[in-house]
Design a protein around this nucleic acid. Structure first.
Lengths: 200, 200
DNA sequence: GCAGTATGTTTCCTTTGACAACATTGTTTC
DNA sequence: GAAACAATGTTGTCAAAGGAAACATACTGC
């Protein structure tokens, strides 16, 4: 009678796979992520992931959803009203976004790659929408305070978030031509905020 | 004596591989690109690509360089001075950028993915820098004409290009929430240009 | 306690990238 | 102009990966 060297059922393989996948992603990028390696890591046969994910892409999609959920949480915290002016609040939001991207570059890349696939599952798009729902809220409040020009907040915030996201894509290694992203973000946001001021 | 059913040497395999790879990229995305399939297509043994590219990544990098060169050409044409004002010129440049990205989505994606790899070859970074050298030139001219606030043109143009690029990343299928990118680009550029006006 | 289902395993197949040893063609040098 | 040599392509082989089918074990509801 052995002390259960390894139970037949893992218990929570789906979760464990996602966690291990996230770890692998951070360590060696998406290229180093193989179902077989994950299985080995979890001490499970190499076909067991198939019980939880139809194929590798399904796992990656699930991971992308998780990513957007985490990003959503980060954004929600950063978007909280603390009595600052619009510029400060938007800058904090942008910095949170950039911070997440720089902390989890491979994951961040995966999220948008997954989202751009023609057959991206609806849950993924929903998760993405969720994370991107915070900037418009900040803009709406800015409008209410008379700090921002009138117009659809979603449309206005799109430009700002696009600039921040694009900065990430164009930059390399957290900087652009030697200037750290953090500084560039603040600069760009300030210029944007200036352009968004109501023209009396 | 046979009419050379197939010559032993291909003659220009390196070029042919890059062209076939570009075609495969457009058809089925980067996932459908395999060295063996390329070889089959060109009627060549499955190991011959190794004579020209150390490994698959080297071929992808070369393809990315080609992409930046084409983007450079597109940008150069769009950045040409035609006597318009700054807003019109910047809008044309931005539209050219977006046009390229939407026309070759997989290629475009590959270009930036390759560029973001930690061990990206210098040629790649140079090619990228080349394509991104046009916006600063347009900004500099805008400054000379008194249409743009003073400051480092490279730094100022970065914000604009970041916004355009980010718009591409955030959008899906050439639109965002049903609004076509072309319209959003014009909108965002106009707002940016407004914010960039010299404050007298 | 028993039937049915969920979950994990074994075994096998095909494709892929990479490597080594070899064959053919093109080029340079004397 | 022929012999060495370099460049280019081929054959054969391997290990690793994703995926599929058939089977084994554990859990659940009745």
């Amino acid at each position: 009678m052995k002390a259960s060297p390894r139970p037949y059922h893992h218990g929570n393989l789906r979760e464990a796979l996602l966690e291990a996948a996230a770890r692998a992603l951070e360590t060696g990028g998406v290229g180093s992520l193989t179902l077989r390696e994950l299985s080995r890591e979890l001490g499970v046969s190499h076909t067991s992931p198939r019980r939880h994910f139809a194929d590798k892409q399904a796992l990656l999609d699930a991971l992308a959803v998780r990513g957007f959920e985490r990003l959503d949480a980060v954004m929600a915290r950063a978007a909280k009203d603390r009595g600052e002016d619009f510029n400060a609040r938007l800058t904090r939001l942008a910095r949170a976004y950039v911070g997440f991207a720089l902390k989890h570059p491979a994951w961040f890349g995966l999220m948008f790659e997954a989202k751009h696939r023609a057959d991206a599952p609806p849950v993924l798009l929903d998760a993405s929408d969720g994370a991107f729902a915070h900037p418009p809220a900040v803009f709406a409040q800015g409008q209410a305070a008379g700090e921002v020009v009138v117009g659809d907040p979603a449309r206005l915030s799109l430009g700002a978030m696009a600039a921040v996201h694009g900065l990430l894509s164009i930059s390399t290694n957290g900087q652009f031509k030697g200037i750290p992203l953090d500084r560039l973000v603040a600069e760009i946001i300030e210029r944007l905020v200036w352009g968004l001021r109501p023209r009396e």
